[in-house]
Design a protein around this nucleic acid. Structure first.
Length: 801
DNA sequence: CGGCCCCGCGTTTTT
DNA sequence: CGCGGGGCCG
């Protein structure tokens, strides 16, 4: 039998995974193992074998992944791919919900709450219940609600669950269950679902409407799931339910890359898949086509320390490549300079474009120092940040108009725009409308009628009632006009008649200009959406009477982030990419810098405290495996945290990399002590030869005495900048020395309590406290003009007057 | 009713 | 340090 072209260029393991599409399958796909290729080839092969595209349901986590997959499948099987039901969990089930939502008591025109709506609603409810926001922190309530929904705990089941209730009491939020209950009731009353509802309500629908379940079970003969390691319980149950009839469920993922537990992802789903589906076939994609052997082996040596793993042995058949270097810096600023210098040298000598390099960090704020350093050297960069466009106020406002037009029950939208732009309806009036709504158990929109019906109305109240009615009329008119004109035209009209466009046009600021641009972009997306729908109609994929609607566009917009369009800019040489490790998942760069490898940062303190070190290690694994040719790691020994200097110790992950893959540039005698310790106790020093301690002294001497000697004693103590360090010395810094920190004796401080000193910036001050630290003294100084500050003696540049 | 100031707080975030 | 929210004042 002639094998299909689909199999060309696939290795045996990949071929097996493509071919075995009947029944349940687990495809364990290591980093860079061609996962997407296998998944898309499998779908293409299924279609080639006669499976109807409509019978295939393929679920992803991002729109980008879905689009990419569809594109690749189209390349293999052509336009038939359009009929595959493929998209994100949220978008696919939002659509299914929309078609059946009457079965679970929501209006067909339900809108989707974005996180800030949810938070506002929670604040509202806390106020109504007279609960203290200091104890019931909205963010915490929100995440707990999210957790409950992800675990399919409805308010009713929550109230019946002693263990979660006990947990609430322990967390000092005994009333949480009632807040949760009120939240769900209010959402339903408002005809609104949050992101988590899209999964929870889908479960409720499939549970309570057996005919609906049966219909989709029959339709989706094949269910495929990408990034299975990141699915939560709600998603897990949906998958189980939908595939129960045919049993053709294929999940693809990598347990080693499960990094979203904080959002409810359950690594158990992939770990125990074979128990859930005992007849499942397992395929392992273990060959890494992305990275050098060094990188793959180094990553393996780290992840091997995790206990909760699926058995697999990833390997690369590429070059050994360069060893991994570790840059050690004294401060976060110096770290940035070293990284940027190294990066620049790398690009210059290789002739590669800037966009071959990425700087990855654990937390977003770490980008700031990196940006400074890049700007300073004039290197083009871009920050890949996960903000959606509805983070912008102007977008939220315009969307609120559209939401209210689509679904007048949406109180959060109502509240947001009833007086925006200002039309003389103040807080008091809004609260009155809200009061009426609560009293009658209806939405604010419906309660407005009550406002005018009120028997006793003063002149003022009459005036306000008139203003509110004007607003209501405006929304009604806008709602009317969307049936009369095209999508884009309606959107434009809404932007004008709401007054939003005017408000920004009047304001002659750069911010206003950017707001107008964003609005324009949003309107353009309507145009684009409309064109897409028109094309579908022309292709016969869609009924001619079924034109693009505002509802449909809105739903798409609410479930889209602008991640993918931030991709490439016109710059021929590209830009260096800066992003969090989380955002980097799925991406790859020739040169990867992982910065801030320090205890309490990466791994994060929280993770260590809550026993989440394994996930943190997976995160590091993800970071490392982004690199194609060269991975460079860095850490700083001190770092600015919330305005003050903090000491940091090298990350345990640095010590977990098999030293064979590290570039250690020290002489052998020093190696013994300077190497990351994998077995030895920290701080133990070897008899004879140079000890770690000696080395540390030498370095400090070098760094601080040298400078001090050049200048009049006691005048100032400057930190040596990387550029002033000799090349050989710089190599010296390229090692890990986790052993040293806490055992360094410190010379007495040059100061004593009560000393009066002068600081460059803060002026005159008095030393109030001196705290002895590992390698320095922490001075608490009360400045005459700047209040009390904590400074490090080494860096403070103090002068005795 | 809106603007300004001060206080508190501060992982990661595909939807 | 930098942002957002709430409170207070004009």
């Amino acid at each position: 039998m002639v094998e299909s072209k689909i199999f060309e260029g696939l290795n045996p393991a990949q071929r097996d995974a493509v071919r075995g599409y009947q029944g349940a399958s687990l495809i364990i796909a290591g980093a860079g193992s061609g996962k997407t290729r296998v998944l898309t080839s499998r779908i293409a092969y299924m279609i080639e074998q006669g499976v109807e595209p409509q019978q295939i349901l393929a679920l992803t986590f991002t729109n980008k992944a879905a689009a990419q997959m569809r594109e690749r499948i189209t390349a293999m099987v052509g336009e038939r791919s359009r009929f595959i039901r493929m998209g994100t969990f949220h978008s696919v089930f939002a659509r299914i919900l929309r078609e059946n939502v009457d079965r679970i008591g929501y209006p067909q025109s339900f809108t989707i709450y974005e996180p800030s709506d949810c938070r506002n609603l929670i604040r509202q409810l806390l106020k109504e219940a007279s609960l203290d926001e200091d104890k019931y922190k909205p963010a915490m309530i929100l995440s707990r609600i999210s957790q409950a929904k992800n675990n399919l705990l409805t308010p009713a089941s929550y109230l019946a669950n002693d263990s979660v209730l006990a947990e609430d009491r322990r967390m000092q939020i005994p009333q949480f269950a009632h807040v949760y209950d009120a939240y769900c009731k209010r959402c339903k009353q408002n005809g609104a679902m949050d992101f988590d509802d899209l999964l929870l309500q889908t479960n409720i629908l499939l549970r309570d409407a057996p005919d609906v379940l049966a219909r989709y079970q029959e339709q989706f003969k094949y269910v495929l799931v990408d990034e299975y390691q990141d699915t939560n319980y709600a998603q897990y149950v949906i998958i189980r339910r939908l595939s129960a009839l045919h049993g053709n469920v294929c999940v693809v993922g990598d347990d080693a890359q499960s990094i979203y537990s904080f959002r409810g992802a359950k690594i158990e789903n992939i770990l125990t898949f074979r128990k859930d589906y005992p007849k499942a076939k397992t395929f392992k994609l273990e060959q890494n086509y992305r990275s050098t052997r060094t990188i793959v082996d180094a990553a393996n040596s780290v992840i091997a320390r995790n206990t909760r793993r699926l058995e697999k042995e990833c390997f690369s058949e590429g070059d050994a490549g360069e060893k991994i270097r570790i840059l050690r810096a004294y401060t976060d600023r110096e770290e940035a300079e070293m990284v940027v210098k190294d990066l620049r040298d790398r690009i210059r000598t290789s002739g590669d474009a800037w966009n071959e390099a990425a700087i990855l960090y654990r937390t977003n704020h770490q980008s700031l120092v990196m940006e400074d350093a890049l700007r300073h050297k004039g290197i083009p960069y871009r920050i890949y940040k996960g903000s959606s466009f509805y983070d912008h106020k102007e977008i939220k406002d315009l969307l609120a108009y559209i939401r209210l037009i689509v679904n007048p029950l949406d109180d959060e939208a109502f509240r947001r725009i009833v007086n925006y732009p200002a039309r003389g309806i103040g807080d008091t009036s809004v609260e009155r409308i809200d009061g009426l709504a609560r009293e009658r158990g209806v939405s604010m929109w419906e309660a407005v009628d009550g406002l005018v019906e009120e028997r006793v109305v003063s002149a003022v109240q009459k005036a306000i009632a008139r203003k509110v009615m004007d607003f209501v009329r405006l929304i009604r008119e806008l709602s009317q006009l969307r049936t009369e004109m095209g999508l884009y035209e309606a959107g434009h009209e809404i932007a004008i008649r709401s007054g939003i466009l005017d408000a920004y046009k009047k304001e002659n600021t750069p911010e206003a200009a950017s707001a107008l641009e964003n609005i324009e972009e949003l309107l353009n997306s309507m145009q684009l959406f409309n064109e897409q729908v028109e094309a579908q109609i022309r292709n016969g994929e869609r009924d001619g009477s079924d034109r693009a609607t505002l509802e449909e566009w809105l739903q798409t917009v609410m479930l889209t982030t602008d991640q993918d369009k931030a991709d490439e800019e016109a710059d021929p040489n590209g830009k260096v990419t800066l992003m969090t490790v989380h955002s980097a998942k799925g991406l790859e760069y020739k040169y990867v810098y992982i910065v801030g490898l320090e205890e309490n940062l990466f791994p994060s303190q929280r993770a260590v405290e809550t026993g989440g070190i394994e996930e943190e290690r997976r995160l590091f694994y993800v970071a490392l495996t982004r690199a194609k040719s060269v991975a460079t790691l860095s850490y700083a020994e001190t770092r600015f945290k919330w305005g003050s200097m903090e000491f940091s110790r090298p990350s345990c992950f640095l010590r977990e990399i098999d030293t064979r893959h590290l570039d250690i540039t020290l002489s052998s005698e020093e190696d013994e002590d300077m190497l990351p310790k994998q077995t030895r106790d920290r701080g133990a020093s070897k008899p004879g030869g140079a000890t770690a301690l000696d080395e540390l002294r030498r370095r400090f001497d070098y760094r601080f005495k040298q400078k001090a000697n050049e200048e009049p004693l006691g005048k100032s103590r400057t930190l040596v900048t990387p550029s002033s360090i000799s090349p050989t010395r710089q190599k010296l810094t390229a090692i890990v020395s986790p052993v040293l920190q806490s055992h360094t004796p410190v010379a007495e401080s040059d100061y004593k309590e009560g000393d009066v000193v002068t600081h460059m910036k803060f002026g005159r001050g008095t030393i109030r406290n001196i705290e002895k630290l590992a390698a320095d003294h922490k001075l608490t100084i009360e400045f005459d003009d700047y209040g009390t500050k904590t400074l490090l003696e080494k860096f403070a540049k103090l002068v005795k007057p």
